[in-house]
Structure formats: C-alpha cells, structure tokens
Computed example of a mutant assay.
Amino acid sequence: MGLLDGLYRFQNCRTLRVSSYDRSGGNADYIQIKAGETAVLADLLNTGIIKHIWITINAKDPMYNRNLILRMYWDGELEPSVQSPIGDFFGQGWGENYLFASLPMAAAPAGGRGLNCYFPMPFTQGAKITLENDSELDVPSFYYYIDYEEHASIPDDAGRFHAWWNREITEPSCEQENEWGLMGEPPKNQSDAGNYLFAEIKGRGHFVGVNYYVDSPGPMWYGEGDDMFMVDGEPWPGSLHGTGTEDFFNSSWCPNELYTHPYFGYARVPDKLGFMGRTHCYRFLLEDAIHFRKSLRSSIEHGHANVLTLDIASVAYWYQSEPHKAFPAIPQRSLRQNMPAITASDVHRWRDAWRNSKGSGKLWGNELD
C-alpha cells in the first residue's frame, strides 16, 4: 500500500487536538514552565491514536534541548514508554538547532526550531505526555499541538510506541585506538557485549528507527563499527549483522556531507579536520522494520571491534506489547552535557607531544620511525 492509498476513504473517528492556545482568546498561545517543574502537555482519557506533535520553544537555557525531558505514558502505565531529552527525540543533537527532514520526524524553520513528529501512537485507556524542565532557568513560552484521533476501539495487535535516549562516552577495548589497523594488526570482535547500546527490549514488537549522534574527538573515521541486532535471545552473530556504521545508515565510503532522504541521512556533519566533531545520522526502518517476538538487543560498535573513544548519544524508536522493560533513570543534568570541543590548539599540543617522543628536530608529522 502506498503512502497516499486510503486517503480518500472515510474514517469512523473524531479528530481532536490539545494545544497551548490562549484560553482567554488572546494571543499568548503558550504555556510557561518554571525551573524544576513538570508540565502535563496532554492527559487523554479515551481511546485513540496520536497522529502528529508540533512544538516550538522559547527558552533562556542555551542547552534547553538537552535539559527539557519528554516522557509519554500509555494506558495508565506508571513507567514511561518514551523518555528522552526533547531535542534528541526530535532530531536535534547536542542541545543545538539545525534543519532536519525525514518522513516521521522533522526540525523545520526557523533554523530547526519547529519540532514535528508523525509517528502514530495508539492507546486504549488514555495517554499522558509530560515535559520536565530540568534546568535552573524558566521556559518563558512553550508552544505545542498534539493532534489525535478518538476511536471506539483500536486493533488488538496495535503495539505501543516507545523511544529511549542513551548516551555513553566510550573507551577503547584495547590499549590503543587502533582503527584501520594503523597501530598494527586490528583486533577481532566476536561479541556484542562491548558495543554501544541502542536499546534492550523485552516483549513482542518491531524496531523502526534511530537518531544517532556521534562526537569524535579525533580526525579518524568513526564509523567502522558494525550494527548488530540479536533477536529473541539468539547468540552472536545474530540474525542481522551489519558491515559498518555508514552501511547501516544507507550511505557509503565514510561520508562527510549533508544528505536528506525520507528514511535516512546525515542532518549534521563536522567542518573540522577529517571526521573530528559532531555528526548526526538517522535511519528509519519504515519499509524494513526489525520484528521480534520475545526480545531485541540492538547495538553498534564504536569503531571496528570497539576501539574508539567517542561521545555517542541516540534515540531508538520501536513499537511493542506492554508491559515493557522499565528504562533506567535518565542521567542527571551534568551527565547529559556536551564534551568540550577539540580545537586547533589541542591538535597542536598533540603534535608537540609527538615531536618530543621522536626527539624533536626536523619532523613533518608523517614519520613512522
């Protein structure tokens, strides 16, 4: 069935919206969220499907995209099915704002501050969406729409929408960051135990996408890491074993260019030496979801055989049956902040240390002995 097939058919439902419109009839169409406060954006008590969410934010905190925490609850559950900093959820990494376009999610003008999500989110016994202002500063104006359909019932086989943010500063699996075999024979990896984790899921469902944010402190290509999906508790190498990070994100040959496709792309790339700096890759498995009946462990290597130090954050998206495995508590604010940017001065200090290790003298920088 095509994307527009069925658009002409009548639907037996009612279209509704929760928004931040000014109840007085004025033009103050926003809510305010004080520092430390959790705002309830929607508390729906019926049966239906959320079809679209739009948000834009005026905030004093320059890191508001990392310090505002979005949570969603279905059918009266006590543990959230969605837990993520709001920026990362909508495709805005590192607390930044930039343009991002895909089929299910987008960050639109001005400058990526128009946040949109089109993932359908069904529920039968209510839905609750909250936003925690985990910041020292108030949010003066928060604008939003939550568009949904009210139904008499939804199919019994409708999974619930889930999304989980993770972040890790990785470390090499061996003493050297031996990528591309530059330091000798490259290591081998016959396990997913040391990989960066996208999600570890219990229950029946299907995995439908990931936003992947990687900050590389060095100029080496960060993406030799293979993606691995272990379905229903199977051992390594699993049913779905990839060949490299750019391959999983549907590109090739160590890309470093902006590219936008409805299902995959590179929304942000660095402009420093090599691959040093921040890259945002995304892939939505809308035609090729990964199905599981009991469990799924989804992960990716950080460099081949996990040899690189990287700052990786991600939001994984999937549908599953309830109850779901409870997420860990979101890391405290200080552990969600960016690593310092590597500068030209840092690179020059590395060069000085290297020169000293070689005894100084007339050295260009590519000497091996």
Rank of each mutant, 00 (worst) to 15 (best):
T279W: 03
E224F: 04
N256L: 10
G233E: 05
M220W: 15
G205Q: 04
L285S: 00
G233N: 11
D247F: 04
G244T: 11
G223C: 05
W236M: 08
W253H: 12
G238I: 08
Y213P: 01
R278C: 12
L285H: 11
R283K: 11
F248S: 09
G242W: 04
L285Y: 05
F275C: 05
D288A: 10
W236L: 08
V208A: 07
C254P: 01
G209I: 05
Y263L: 15
G242D: 07
G233I: 06
W221L: 03
L285K: 03
W221A: 03
M276N: 09
D215H: 08
N211F: 07
Y282T: 02
G277V: 00
D271S: 07
L286R: 08
Y212A: 00
H261R: 11
Y282C: 00
R278I: 04
C281E: 12
Y282F: 07
E246N: 10
G233R: 03
L258G: 12
D227A: 04
Y222C: 04
S252G: 10
C254R: 15
P237G: 08
T245P: 00
F284I: 06
G205V: 01
L273C: 10
F275M: 08
D215R: 03
F207G: 02
V269T: 14
V214G: 02
G218S: 14
F207M: 06
D288E: 13
F248Q: 10
H206C: 13
T243I: 14
F264G: 02
W236Y: 15
Y213F: 15
P217D: 13
G225T: 08
G223D: 09
G242S: 09
L286G: 00
P255V: 03
S216R: 02
S251T: 14
Y266T: 10
K272A: 14
K272S: 13
Y259V: 06
W236Q: 04
L286E: 04
V214M: 08
V231A: 02
E257Y: 15
D215C: 11
G244S: 11
G242I: 09
L258D: 05
G223A: 13
H261E: 11
H241G: 11
V210L: 05
P217T: 01
Y212C: 00
D232L: 02
G209T: 06
C254L: 09
F275E: 03
Y263Q: 15
L286T: 05
G209H: 01
T243P: 04
M230P: 00
F229R: 03
P235M: 12
S252N: 13
G203N: 01
N256S: 13
P219R: 05
Y259P: 00
Y259D: 08
A289H: 04
D226A: 12
P270D: 04
P255K: 12
